[in-house]
Design a protein around this nucleic acid. Structure first.
Lengths: 250, 250
DNA sequence: CAGTGGTCTAGACCACTCT
DNA sequence: GAGTGGTCTAGACCACTGC
């Protein structure tokens, strides 16, 4: 079998990568390039094995890691698919609010504002932009179980989300992340959140239907796409009188 | 090879478990029973394979899953070890506060109180105890970078933590979870946290050196040991003026 | 029935650690 | 050098899906 590592030697240890990790990169490259789009089936394990000139077990191990990172989804008997934000499983992946009692209900989103502005210093730093570069700013109100619970402000690099408008968002069926991957080919893979407790200011209190001075969560999120590139900065304010932020530590 | 599934038939599908999952259970049983204690090396893959009458690859897959669940730690060339809370990697696994600027510093813990009481209704529900059963209650103050940042109250089933005393805690070197696993054989595996924003009351404000009415995080944690059995309920109050709660969403 | 992913085996060789 | 985990292969058979 033609091994990509035929030239391996201890002196090159820094550049050594196991075969299955190289395969992993090749698959990710296919995802990034759009060769396989969200929802598509990728080629079968045996086909990928012959294409890359490795055994099925090696492809399998690569796919295993990509599946556990939620980039791919395996379906026994059918094939392996590119993960999507439209799967029910993914609905509450990036909104970790759960009701204090009762069952989670589908959030209802209202778009309040959508315009192009210059990035705030915080957004610029989070997105790796130069201070003052253009971003598209969205403000939304999210209601859970009929109660306005989250007010957030999203900053997106204008260079990536060219042509984004309130109309296009409102006409789209499905979640915002679903919209991004379907219309802009940008899939959100991972997010880092920073949570603090703050007091509601007058404006936010009004939107959330609470008194100013009530304690709320301030959640700053940076969301990453393939290759750990940041593509969204979101600051959300969460009421926690009827919901809590859920987290599991492993 | 003598397969445990020799009797498998479609009618028994509900009871079917792949071999490697059965091996996984056998290994977890060894961990629960104390056959291998935290920090110990478990037998090598080939030894386990012959002991259980399966191939090395099957044992390997079982260990892979246990390692990714942080129950075991693999060390190439040395062996596979039972995970411990004393590893540097585990230090901030259950305390997700990070400084707004600067580097994380080792927390300094002060034990304020340690006594046996009857479980609060919340603690009883979280721990699966009957209302009013005995629990040991600890109150602690945690300082990060010299600043009192967390005040928490821990409830532990008295039946499991017999003989726990303030003296024993204070005389122990290392973290509380380290103490639990070393002295009581109870290892914390996983935790569920629920986060809300609240206002600091007079008592907590005093301990944390802030004004009453300042917004803080209220973090309720239920911690589980092997077999998803809850063994700790902890309510913590976090100042977030110099730190934030960090979380990564996958 | 063909094609897919899921499990399991047996054996080879590599990389790392300790003696 | 012996022993450990890490990678890779080749092939067998099972479970599930859809035609």
């Amino acid at each position: 079998m033609a091994s990509v590592n035929a030239s391996y030697s201890p002196a090159l240890a820094a550049t050594y990568l196991p075969l299955y990790r190289q395969i992993k990169r090749l698959i990710v490259a296919g995802l990034e390039s759009g060769e396989w789009r969200p929802g598509d089936a990728i080629p079968s394990e045996v086909e990928l094995a012959t294409r890359f000139g490795v055994s099925q077990g090696t492809v399998r191990k690569a796919i295993d890691e990509l599946a556990s990172a939620n980039l791919l989804v395996r379906r026994q008997g059918k094939g392996t698919y590119v993960a999507t934000h439209s799967e029910p499983h993914a609905q509450f992946r990036f909104l970790r609010l759960r009701p204090l009692d009762g069952n989670s209900q589908q959030p209802e989103t209202t778009l309040i504002e959508c315009r192009k502005i210059r990035a705030s210093s915080e957004a610029a730093r989070a997105l790796g932009l130069k201070s003052g570069e253009g971003v598209i700013m969205l403000r939304r109100l999210l209601a859970l179980g009929g109660v306005s619970t989250v007010m957030d402000e999203i900053s997106l690099p204008a260079s990536i989300f060219k042509g984004l408008s309130a109309n296009r968002i409102n006409n789209y069926q499905g979640s915002l992340y679903n919209f991004f991957e379907a219309e802009f080919g940008t899939r959100m893979i991972r997010a880092d959140e920073r949570i603090r407790a703050v007091l509601a200011g007058a404006t936010i209190a009004k939107w959330l239907g609470i008194d100013a001075g009530v304690p709320i969560l301030c959640v700053d999120r940076v969301t990453f796409t393939y290759g750990d590139r940041p593509v969204e900065f979101c600051r959300g304010f969460y009421r926690t009188d009827q919901h809590y932020y859920a987290n599991t530590l492993f």
